[in-house]
């Protein structure tokens, strides 16, 4: 709260109006619509609409394909988090050691952030394209019958690789910043206390880095939930046989071309609940960080 302010009511209302208008029209109204639609069932021609309370939700929780999308999302998130956080941490620790080269490495590692998820998907799709991909050929030569178009596990591996590849840069930047904010005197004190490099890392550096790691974990989960839509759509279209159909992708597929709007809306509402949960966790974290 500022103590010193300007007088007036009309001017600030005018200044805040555009943002509020866009927010109301394109955020709140559709969100409410989603909630409302999740209680409705439309017939195939869209002529009659019936209010059915929680029927859409009940139907959803009986639907094996919904559980499938949950499982896909869970596997996808976990794999991306482990892979990209692990690799980024390793790289950040190495870069933090290089007092001279850290800046150069940072630049050379951070740019994939700017690559669109869908484009990242295309990069990896091309390398692993069963008929012409260079790396697919390598795998084939190693005796692996690689075909992400037919094999669900292969497809999942491919989207995980593409998603992790893009996310490493982000995780790396935050890990490096976290490492560089640890006072050097603390490391030196630990060294004087007789701790070797490995021990120092696990007893001093890692605990101090854990807030950053936790923050990144949440960010990575959010990333996989929402931003990987482009990767999935470009690489696998959710297939083969829904093996890479994430929850968001299913919302999109089910409602497509006026399909099951009620079911799609119900899924949207569940996703909203998940975002609210994740945001709340993130805030808890921020609050803690503020109190340091």
């Amino acid at each position: 709260m500022r103590k010193v302010i300007f007088k007036g009511t009309a001017l600030p209302l005018l200044l805040i109006a555009p943002q509020i208008a866009v927010t109301m029209i394109f955020f709140y109204w559709p969100a409410l619509q989603a909630v409302w639609q999740s209680f409705l069932i439309q017939d195939a021609f869209g002529t009659t609409t019936q209010f059915v309370w929680f029927e859409n939700y009940q139907y959803l929780f009986k639907d094996p394909s919904y559980y499938n999308s949950m499982a896909v999302t869970a596997v996808f998130s976990t794999a991306v988090a482990v892979l990209s956080l692990g690799l980024a941490l390793l790289l950040a620790v190495m870069a933090d050691k290089q007092i001279k080269g850290a800046g150069t490495y940072k630049v050379l590692l951070m740019w994939p952030y700017a690559v669109a998820p869908a484009v990242a998907g295309v990069l990896w799709l091309f390398m692993f394209q069963p008929s012409l991909g260079v790396l697919a050929q390598v795998l084939r030569n190693l005796g692996l019958d690689w075909n992400p178009l037919l094999d669900g596990t292969h497809a999942m591996v491919l989207v995980v690789l593409a998603a992790s590849w893009k996310q490493i840069s982000y995780n790396f930047l935050f890990f490096l910043a976290g490492l560089q904010s640890i006072p050097k005197s603390l490391i030196e004190a630990a060294a004087i206390d007789g701790a070797g490099p490995r021990r120092r890392f696990w007893t001093v550096v890692f605990p101090l880095l854990s807030p950053t790691a936790f923050f990144l974990l949440v960010v990575n989960i959010v990333y996989v939930f929402f931003d990987t839509f482009g990767i999935v759509d470009a690489v696998t279209h959710g297939g083969p046989a829904k093996a890479t159909e994430t929850m968001v992708y299913k919302v999109f597929q089910d409602g497509r071309l006026g399909g099951d709007l009620g079911g799609s809306a119900a899924q949207s509402v569940i996703l909203m609940a998940i975002v609210i949960g994740l945001t709340a966790i993130q805030f808890k974290y921020i609050e803690r960080r503020v109190h340091y």
Partner: peptide, 13 residues
């Protein structure tokens, strides 16, 4: 609105 990404309100929007 931080909690309302496009992905959760695709069709109504």
């Amino acid at each position: 609105t931080l909690m309302l990404p496009v992905e959760v309100r695709i069709y109504p929007t």
